Amino acid sequence: NLYFQGLKYMVPGARVTRGLDWKWRDQDGSPQGEGTVTGELHNGWIDVTWDAGGSNSYRMGAEGKFDLKLAP
């Protein structure tokens, strides 16, 4: 699974964008943008601060869902 392989790169400072299971509307800005991981992966959740200004926790394994992917 590509998403599980990418988890080791989901570290503080990593750049991310919305992924396969995104369901959080425009939390990442409008139009959709990139963000920066600000915390360690914990119980399948990870913290992100978006360039647009907001921050929140997103699923990276929790509930079998992956809200994020590494930015290109």
Rank of each mutant, 00 (worst) to 15 (best):
W45M: 06
W50Y: 00
Y3L: 14
W22P: 04
W45R: 03
G29L: 05
H42E: 11
L20M: 12
W45Y: 07
W45F: 05
S55D: 07
F4W: 15
M10H: 03
S30N: 14
T17H: 07
F4E: 15
G64R: 05
P31W: 07
W24A: 07
G33M: 09
N1E: 15
Y58C: 05
Q27P: 06
L20E: 11
L68V: 07
G19D: 05
V11K: 12
F4I: 13
T17C: 15
K23H: 08
S55C: 15
A14M: 09
D21I: 02
A71C: 11
G39C: 12
S55I: 12
L70W: 09
N56C: 14
S57Y: 09
M10Y: 14
W22M: 05
K69N: 12
E34V: 14
Q27R: 04
K8W: 10
V11N: 07
L41V: 09
I46F: 01
R59G: 03
R18N: 01
R15C: 04
P12D: 08
Q5A: 12
Y9G: 08
T36E: 06
T49M: 13
L7Q: 09
L70N: 04
D67M: 02
W50G: 00
V37T: 04
T36K: 05
P12C: 15
V11Q: 09
D67K: 01
W24G: 08
F4G: 14
G33N: 05
G53P: 00
F4V: 11
K8V: 12
G61P: 01
D67W: 02
N43E: 10
Y58M: 04
K23D: 11
K8P: 10
M60A: 06
P31K: 07
Q5R: 09
R15W: 06
V37A: 03
M10D: 01
R18C: 07
K8C: 15
D47Q: 15
I46D: 00
Y58T: 02
G35K: 01
G39M: 06
G61H: 00
N43H: 13
Y9F: 11
P72L: 11
N56Y: 14
G39R: 10
V11I: 13
K23T: 10
Y58W: 02
L7D: 07
G13V: 03
K65P: 01
D51E: 04
V16D: 01
F66G: 00
D21M: 03
E63F: 10
D51W: 00
D26V: 05
Q5L: 10
A62H: 10
D47C: 15
N43V: 08
D67G: 01
G6W: 15
F66A: 04
P31Q: 08
G19P: 03
T17K: 13
T49W: 08
V16N: 00
Y9C: 15
D47F: 13
R18P: 08
D47H: 14
D67C: 03
A62P: 02
G13S: 04
D26Y: 06
T36G: 01
G61F: 00
T38R: 08
D51P: 00
D47N: 13
N43C: 15
S30L: 11
T49S: 10
H42T: 13
R59I: 02
R18I: 08
T17V: 14
D47E: 14
L41W: 13
D67P: 01
I46Y: 02
G39D: 07
M10I: 11
M60Y: 11
T49V: 12
A71T: 11
G54N: 10
W24M: 05
W24C: 07
G39I: 04
N56F: 15
S57M: 12
I46Q: 01
L70V: 08
W50H: 00
T49I: 12
R15T: 02
G6A: 15
I46C: 05
G13N: 05
G53A: 04
E63Y: 11
G39P: 01
P72M: 11
G53N: 03
L70T: 06
M60Q: 02
I46G: 00
W24V: 06
L20H: 13
Y3V: 14
R18K: 05
G19E: 04
L41H: 07
R25L: 15
V48W: 02
T36Q: 06
K8L: 11
G39Y: 02
K23W: 07
G61Y: 03
D67E: 09
V48Y: 00
A71Q: 09
K8S: 10
G64I: 04
G29M: 06
N1G: 10
D47I: 13
S55Q: 11
A71D: 05
V37Q: 01
E40D: 11
G6D: 15
A62M: 04
S30R: 12
K65R: 09
G33I: 04
S30G: 15
N1A: 09
G35I: 02
E40W: 14
V37K: 00
K69F: 13
F66T: 05
G53V: 02
E40G: 11
A14N: 05
A71R: 08
Q5W: 13
W50T: 01
G44P: 01
S57R: 14
T49A: 11
A71M: 10
V11L: 10
V16R: 00
G6L: 15
D28Q: 05
G61C: 04
L2R: 14
T36N: 03
P12S: 09
A14K: 05
D28S: 06
I46H: 01
Y58N: 02
N1W: 07
D28L: 04
Q32D: 10
A14C: 15
A52Q: 10
D28R: 03
W24P: 07
A14E: 06
T38N: 07
G61V: 02
F4A: 13
W50A: 00
G39E: 05
S30K: 12
G19A: 07
E34G: 11
K8G: 12
L41S: 07
P31A: 09
K8I: 13
G35Q: 00
G35V: 02
S30P: 10
D47A: 13
S55E: 11
Y3I: 14
Y9N: 08
G19V: 07
G64K: 06
D21T: 03
G13E: 03
D67S: 01
G39L: 04
G13P: 03
A71P: 04
M10V: 09
W24F: 06
D28H: 05
Q32L: 10
G29E: 06
L41A: 08
G54E: 10
